[in-house]
């Protein structure tokens, strides 16, 4: 069986996989990183989004062997070592940007990539278009958009705290 070596959330793992094994299966079933969800399994819903070498991708539509040698960040890897939430996670909590929470890991990972690719800041329209690959079926997108806008202010240094980002 093929072997793949992946650097996941800062730790290198070498695992044996079938060629057909999906990256999300390695993350969830082998590495037990079950924060990455599988919603639709047809690359539409975005619950499985992780970062592959810094870009957001749908891990249900990627073979593990295609990720050989890659650096992967999942929802488990974005908080600080002391447990301090990433500003995006904190903003989702602060702005009630989740209800059932199923889509949240993918939303957060897509949102971080979106903010990082727009260092000049984001309009509401750009945030909404940037979430095209993520589907939420309960909260609705409004608070998610507000959370991302606030987190972007903090991540990009225009606001010191989420509270001041709202002003």
């Amino acid at each position: 069986m093929p072997q793949v070596t992946l650097a996941v959330n800062g730790t290198s793992h070498t695992v044996e996989v079938e060629a057909r094994t999906l990256l999300v299966e390695v993350l969830r079933e082998t590495l037990r990183l079950t924060g990455t969800h599988v919603g639709c399994d047809t690359s539409q819903c975005g619950a499985c989004v992780v970062h592959l070498d810094g870009d957001s991708v749908k891990s249900c539509t990627l073979l593990a062997v295609q990720a050989q040698g890659a650096t992967i960040t999942t929802i488990e890897g974005i908080a600080a070592a002391d447990g301090t939430l990433h500003p995006m996670q904190e903003a989702f909590r602060e702005y009630h940007a989740l209800q059932c929470g199923f889509c949240t890991p993918g939303m957060v990972m897509s949102a971080i990539d979106l903010v990082e690719k727009h260092p000049q800041g984001l309009s509401e329209q750009e945030i909404r278009e940037g979430l095209e690959g993520n589907i939420c079926r309960c909260t609705g997108y409004h608070n998610i958009v507000k959370a991302i806008a606030a987190a972007a202010e903090v991540m990009q240094g225009r606001a010191g705290t989420l509270a001041s980002a709202a002003e």
Binding site: V57, S110, D113, L114, G133
Partner: peptide
């Protein structure tokens, strides 16, 4: 084309 994640692959 597609969405961000599709365009990244």
């Amino acid at each position: 084309i597609g969405d961000t994640q599709v365009r990244n692959r």
